[in-house]
Design a protein around this nucleic acid. Structure first.
Lengths: 336, 336
DNA sequence: CTGTTAGCGCCTTCAT
DNA sequence: ATGAAGGCGCTAACAG
């Protein structure tokens, strides 16, 4: 079933059918209606490959996801898919290993499927600085907003990581904590770096000097966080609270704490980051900093579509994070 | 950059280029090597649209996912993506609303992107019975294995839901529980139905008559489970244990229980289903029935590829589930 | 082993 | 408002 068949069935030429498919204005309403009816009757769907071969473009937007265990990204992805669909594009997910080169991969994808745009979920700022210019396609970097990044066809959407982390640690400090462990990613991860800075800001403002021995290096997955916390415990580090740079990290850490006989929050308070749905249902309910995934997704797609369709240049949008209270933080800590 | 350019650059014809692209055997090794080198040098990637237009096929496998809040599916998806890639196909995810018609949607997708195969994550057995024959593409139904379904190009991969549920409830019974609430989906969902049957089997074998008032209807998401448990509590139902038909449901239920002042497992024991990673890290560690997602994914892709490439007919593969012990089940219950 | 060539289904000037 | 025709990049006969 091709447009030729439809042409025959409706008694007009293929160009007219093509015009109807593409919703051109210069088709007599009667004709258009008739063609539409016939297409519907026979269940005609245009061959996307032929269209795209012709146009040299797809209606695809690629989501390049770094790290599969990141539950926050999973949430974002679902929302991105639906926003993308609203604009008539279809989203293609490309999962990357946590330490793969996101731009290299993107470049290959571009040549293969010719997407109209790319949304990166996470990515290394320094890598972008060096190599983004080989990406000739409108892009947005979601969940990372660096002031050091300036490309005309790259937007960024995310929260202010430093400020958000600061508010999280402030929250702990307001509850009387002063020996606060920090669990999170390495300095090579921009958000991790900013979150760590934010944490130190909060401490500094309260006259606390951050003890580097209280930093636990962890990837954004359960197991890694579990081990990181166990390492801290094994080293006999003393702290009354933990700031985890993601909820998943917080879960891993809490598991380690509880397994080691520490109670949360009676012995150790924990605050997470992301505010994924699970954090509202776990026991104890996890205090966290909510990243508005709905907003991030919507704004990312909006910006991208605008770059694609109206050739606007990349913008940086900072969305507001928000402290989520929880039962995982207690006020009167006992020294651990 | 097209094969024409490569042809010119390498001094041979387009067919030769096409042959090396498709790794045909009838090319002189020297020629092949030279062409390969040139393609690499100029960074040539074949235009997938043109290829697919020509062969009337893509290398796509579509994953049709019903329900976005199902964390088990999220896990499966990631594994499916990587298995699919190993076979040289690329996976395209299509999220559907929980109450959308998966076959209608699949049919549209088929005409649009012409995938070589489809993997359904969840789906209604009765719907498949009635409408699967309109899908002319090799398919596998993952996580559902019904004996009532017989189509030549449909495989099924999953656990034995009834048996698995039975073992879960057995586990509760062995811990002395007799008033057991069941939380899960409606009878229209085949796995839910089977899991309920399995639960009743276990009870029957222990001489317990299942009290329908102890069934809480819940979708496979946190919120729904939370409300379902609250409803049970509000009705003053008495039970010492809960069998939740998914871990997410278990989390929602535990949250409701704890919020209502019931302790898990001291007052109420809870066992989940799926064995997602989170279940190993939550507090208390959730007893569950593990669905081997890795195996399900691998087997699904294997079967599908075999159907696609060797025209084998659909098979049903039952994989083994496994009880995961946890701290959410206690032995000596107190009446609630 | 390699080259020539006819389309795959569609969009898009250019005519009418 | 509509039709005719060329070609997007590639594959697969068919011919050497």
């Amino acid at each position: 079933m091709t447009i030729k068949d439809i042409a025959r069935l409706s008694g007009c030429s293929v160009s007219t059918i093509s015009r109807v498919i593409n919703n051109r204005q210069d088709v007599k309403p009667d004709t258009k209606e008739k063609v539409l009816r016939i297409m519907h009757e026979v269940g005609f769907v245009p061959n996307a490959n032929a269209q795209q071969l012709k146009i040299q473009q797809s209606r695809n937007i690629v989501f390049v996801v770094k790290g599969t265990g990141n539950m926050f990204f999973a949430d974002l992805l679902v929302r991105l898919q639906s926003c993308t669909a609203e604009y008539g594009y279809n989203g293609v997910i490309s999962y990357l290993d946590e330490n793969a080169d996101e731009l290299d991969s993107a470049e290959k994808i571009i040549r293969e499927i010719k997407p109209k745009g790319i949304i990166f979920l996470g990515g290394s700022v320094t890598n972008f600085q060096r190599n983004f210019d080989m990406i000739g396609v409108p892009s947005v970097l979601a969940t990372v907003t660096s002031e050091e990044l300036h490309f005309d066809n790259l937007s960024m959407v995310g929260i202010d990581d430093q400020k958000s982390a600061r508010s999280a640690v402030d929250y702990l400090i307001r509850h009387g904590h002063r020996r606060i462990a920090v669990l999170g990613g390495p300095g090579s991860s921009y958000p991790s770096q900013m979150r760590r800075k934010g944490a130190e800001d909060a401490m500094a403002a309260a006259g606390i000097t951050f003890d580097p021995a209280l930093f636990g290096l962890s990837n954004y997955d359960f197991e890694s966080a579990y081990h990181a916390m166990n390492a801290l415990l094994a080293q006999g580090r003393r702290f009354t609270a933990v700031f985890a740079m993601s909820d998943v990290i917080a879960f891993g850490a809490m598991r380690a704490l509880v397994s080691a006989g520490r109670r949360v929050p009676e012995d150790v308070s924990v605050i997470g980051f992301d505010g994924i749905t699970m954090s509202r249902y776990c026991i104890p309910v996890l205090a966290s900093v909510r990243q508005p995934s709905e907003q991030i997704a919507r704004k990312s797609v909006e910006l991208l579509v605008s770059q694609i369709e109206h050739c606007t240049s990349g913008r940086t949008v900072i969305v507001e994070s928000q402290i989520l209270e929880g039962d995982s933080v207690a006020s009167i800590p006992q020294e651990t």
